[in-house]
């Protein structure tokens, strides 16, 4: 207080708050109203500093609190930690891992010794080969490229297509990959076994079967040649309906399995806690 009055030439604090800088209206060094309007509640540097201090303090308090909560959970839990439990890493786990590893490496070496790759013809830009195929793991993508009939003609645009067949097929990869990314955010809950989640297992079976039928779609032109009854369009619709069929069957089977599964669980439960 004493320092304050000494600096402000004897003015009191009350005057200071009520009418800041009004002792001489001609000499104003704060830039006037335009820069710092009266009643502006933007924080001072001190306040800013305190706020950042507040954040770190908050973080610290949160950590303290969550540690305390963990301890409370641990105290409440009836899980008893014992001294020696499961298998030791050496030798048990290591011997199992080494045997699996050497078996797998052995299989690779055996297969590559018995089925080496052929010596193909050199690249020739002037002659397109009759059958172009990527490696098997990209068949699904190559099959998607042959789904032109899905690219519908829109009546609004006078029977024109929004995207060319090729662009459409390439863009069709997008939603499929995005669906894969979204899986954990669409299917929540604690169910783990397929019996406990028939719907999502059916979705999975749909995906697997779709990958297979899309791989077959990659050779649709060969199939249409060999099997005269199947037109290319018919094959495509077959390839889209087989996954649906598989999904429905999976759903039905798992649903009926769940009845028995839940019955078993319930029976065990009621044996422990008989109904009153």
């Amino acid at each position: 207080m004493t320092e304050h009055t000494a600096i402000d030439d004897g003015r009191t604090d009350a005057e200071d708050v009520a009418d800041p800088g009004s002792d001489d209206p001609d000499v104003r060094t704060d830039g006037g109203e335009a820069i710092a309007p009266a009643g502006d509640d933007s924080p001072s540097f001190r306040e800013r500093k305190e706020r950042t201090d507040g954040l770190s303090r908050l973080t610290y308090e949160y950590f303290e609190r969550s540690r305390r909560e963990d301890q409370v959970l641990r105290d409440d839990s009836d899980y008893v930690e014992r001294d020696v439990l499961g298998f030791p890493a050496w030798p048990h786990e290591m011997i199992r891992n080494l045997s699996i590893t050497s078996f797998f490496v052995g299989v690779i070496l055996f297969v590559s010794a018995t089925m080496p790759p052929p010596l193909e013809a050199a690249a020739n830009p002037t002659s397109t080969p009759a059958v172009i195929l990527p490696d098997w793991y990209l068949y699904w993508s190559f099959g998607i490229l042959k789904t032109e009939p899905l690219n519908l003609e829109l009546a609004i645009l006078g029977g024109e297509k929004i995207a060319s067949d090729r662009t459409f097929a390439v863009l069709l990869h997008g939603p499929i990959i995005v669906m894969l990314f979204l899986v954990p955010f669409l299917n929540k809950g604690s169910a783990r076994r397929p019996v406990e989640q028939p719907f999502w297992s059916a979705v999975g079976v749909f995906g697997v079967l779709l990958a297979f039928t899309m791989s077959l779609q990659a050779i649709v032109n060969l199939m249409a040649q060999r099997l005269p009854l199947l037109t290319a369009d018919l094959i495509l619709w077959l390839h889209l309906s087989i996954p649906f069929l598989g999904a429905v069957i999976t759903y039905a089977v798992l649903k009926s399995m769940r009845e028995g599964y839940m019955y078993d669980l319930n029976r065990r439960y009621y044996r422990l806690r008989p109904p009153r």
Binding site: E120, A122, A123, N124
Partner: peptide, 20 residues
């Protein structure tokens, strides 16, 4: 860089080009 490799590159290139 055999026949299949060349034409696989061709298809990949066409796929890349047809993205808007």
């Amino acid at each position: 860089w055999n026949q299949l490799a060349y034409w696989a590159a061709q298809i990949g290139l066409e796929m890349a080009r047809s993205v808007p």
